[in-house]
Design a protein around this nucleic acid. Structure first.
Lengths: 107, 107
DNA sequence: CACCGTTATGCACGAGAATGCATAACGATA
DNA sequence: TATCGTTATGCATTCTCGTGCATAACGGTG
């Protein structure tokens, strides 16, 4: 019986989840595409859901993670702010450290 | 914005979860009460669900984690085997180590 | 002005998980 | 033999989460 440890990691503020695997992936995709709808398409999740994820994130972080634009030639877009990039990076860093710790752990 | 790291940890075999927080609590309660129905009552979960949790665990571990008895003066009971206790202990140990690591981590 | 792609929102629907309830089998004990 | 508390299982109901679809607002561009 080979047991393999698995984990999920996320960050909370006031007891509510702010960023985990799902939102981190979404924010990264937004950073790369500059569009929420494109990010949702790439991740194969519904736009409806992706938008809800951002909405909750903003509620819990007091805005400033993303910046949206509506209308225009391109139709609009969603940008990841510097603050948002730092949030993703700090999550990714912690997750990577945890993965390494778990791999090198003397069981 | 105060960010607090949280995590869930579990052990898998063949890509399927064997023990996590839920089953660990259930097994510990069985160890203390010697009864699945009592364990479910104490944990405020349905017997139906508790039984299903054990059923899946046995499927994935090839039996030997618990020993059940039906009928008799006491009605029967469910015991945690030595193998079962070791499983819970190894999970608890890993979880505690991870908690400590996360607390002492230089953010 | 009409078009287009994006953000944004409401609502019905489906899948999966857990609950609640009913029922059966079991076996020592009075 | 009748009782009792437990294990065990089936099935309808409920709840949550994500999907799918419809619709509106927006604002450059042709």
């Amino acid at each position: 019986m080979k047991l393999k440890p698995k984990f999920k990691l996320w960050l909370e503020v006031d007891g509510k989840p702010v960023i985990g695997e799902g939102r981190a992936d979404l924010l990264m995709e937004i950073y790369e595409t500059g569009s929420l709808s494109a990010a949702a398409r790439n991740l194969r999740i519904s736009y409806r859901h992706a938008h809800e994820m951002l909405s909750e994130l903003n509620e819990r972080c007091g805005m400033g993670i993303i910046a949206t634009e509506v209308g225009g030639a391109s139709g609009g877009g969603t940008r990841l702010t510097a603050k948002g990039r730092k949030l993703v990076e700090s999550y990714q860093a912690m997750k990577n450290e945890l993965e390494n710790w778990l791999e090198n752990r003397s069981s």
